[in-house]
């Protein structure tokens, strides 16, 4: 706690003057279930990318084409929406620590 700034050092009214700073908040720490992608079942339809409320599905392009998708575990809160929407059952929610 002492490494954080004191009340005199932060802008009044809790205004955040730096845009996009929410990326620094590791919301992945909140997760209790972790989505695991079975790349052999995934057909890259990107429905998970569309539905993910935290923009935590990363699309990896190779030579300008979709190669595969990955999970951004630093920000994924483990809501499980991707598992529900996946038409190929390629995503499974597994308890953290397993």
């Amino acid at each position: 706690m002492s490494s954080k700034p004191g009340w005199r050092e932060i802008p009044i009214g809790a205004v955040l003057l730096e845009p996009g700073s929410s990326v620094k908040v590791r919301t992945g720490d909140w997760r209790t279930f972790k989505p695991i992608i079975d790349q052999s079942k995934c057909v890259r339809c990107l429905l998970c990318w569309i539905y993910c409320p935290d923009a935590s599905i990363k699309v990896i392009d190779v030579n300008g084409k979709v190669d595969h998708v990955e999970i951004d575990y630093e920000h994924c809160k483990g809501c499980g929406i991707c598992e529900r929407v996946c038409p190929r059952n390629a995503i499974t929610m597994k308890p953290e620590g397993e």
């Binding site: 706690m1 809790a14 955040l16 003057l17 845009p19 700073s21 929410s22």
Partner: peptide, 11 residues
């Protein structure tokens, strides 16, 4: 800028 953000136990 962001007005009225979340500030929890640490801020």
């Amino acid at each position: 800028a962001t007005y009225g953000p979340l500030a929890l136990t640490d801020f």
